[in-house]
Design a protein around this nucleic acid. Structure first.
Length: 279
DNA sequence: AACCAGGGTGAGC
DNA sequence: GCTCACCATGGT
């Protein structure tokens, strides 16, 4: 059972399986955490510059305020029963094995805006480059971390292209503009998966896959099942060989994995990428 | 030199 | 509704 205590501007987190390296750096659900030579992790999340220091049976989260405990507990998804999800997959041994294979993988609950920007950048791109772009985009903000919608909407398309965003530059800019002009990302939390999905598709640079990532990683809608090239391959190999396209894979995944399909997806995705699932 | 990467868009059907 | 060429960039 996870226990959190506050001491000297830090949370001491004990009794968690959370694999920091896997979850913050390797899992490709978040792109702006950095690991230093000491094995410490750092990032700016929702405007807060924090550090994470691994410890025996947990970690230390530095530079936080006591009233933010609920925020971080949610960010690291500490209140979800991952074992129960694995146990529910009795009839889907490959999926169960994938989850048991990566017991420390957690699905972060990121600020929606951060997930939105990161996954617009992710389109037809590779992980090292997404990380690089996330870094460069962060350099645009005065305070570090991702620029706000106000800030980003004032950056020219040419400047974004100069940073290496390529054809995603106008998507970023226009999406930032829409959010600035009143497109309410927080309101999406009050909607069903389908409603929020439809709304997200209105944003330039957001299609089915990016919308699902924003819903899973930013809105906490755990039924969202992002289907990228890896997930499409693995799903066709092991679960839905007759699926004709990504949308059909997505629909069938909901039927197979249920309300927490996205949590299962993370393990499947990572196992496939690591070569732990043959394709 | 083609092909790939956590795809999206618009045109044409 | 559907498919498909095209879109930057850097790595293999």
């Amino acid at each position: 059972m996870t226990n959190i205590t506050y001491e000297n501007r830090s949370f001491i987190v004990e009794g968690t399986l959370l694999d920091l390296q896997l979850t913050l750096v390797e899992s490709a659900q978040v792109f702006h955490w950095r690991e230093d030579a000491n094995g410490h992790f750092s990032a700016v999340v929702a405007g807060r510059a924090v550090s994470v220091i691994p410890r025996e049976n947990g970690f230390l989260l530095e530079n936080v305020m006591p009233e933010d405990e609920a925020f971080w507990r949610n960010y690291f998804d500490m209140d979800r029963d991952y074992d129960a999800i694995a146990d529910s997959l009795e009839e889907l041994p490959i999926a169960r094995q994938a989850m048991n294979c990566l017991p420390g993988l957690r699905v972060l609950n990121q600020p929606v805006w951060e997930a939105l920007i990161a996954f617009i950048l992710s389109a037809n791109n590779n992980v090292p480059r997404i990380r690089m772009l996330a870094q460069k985009i962060s350099s645009l903000s005065e305070k570090g971390g991702f620029p706000s919608a106000d800030e980003l909407s004032e950056v020219s398309e040419a400047e974004l292209r100069r940073l290496g965003c390529g054809y995603r530059a106008p998507y970023l800019r226009q999406t930032a503009r829409m959010v600035r002009e009143g497109f309410d990302l927080e309101e999406l939390r009050t909607m069903t998966y389908e409603e929020a999905h439809r709304r997200l598709l209105m944003l330039p640079g957001v299609g089915d896959k990016v919308a699902d990532c924003v819903q899973l990683f930013g809105l906490g809608q755990s039924e969202a099942f992002p289907v990228d090239v890896w997930v499409e391959r693995l799903m066709k190999s092991w679960f839905v060989p007759d699926a004709r396209n990504r949308r059909e894979v997505c629909v069938r995944a909901h039927e197979l994995f249920g309300a927490q399909a996205g949590i299962v997806q993370q393990s499947l995705f990572h196992c496939a990428r690591m070569g732990l699932i043959s394709l």
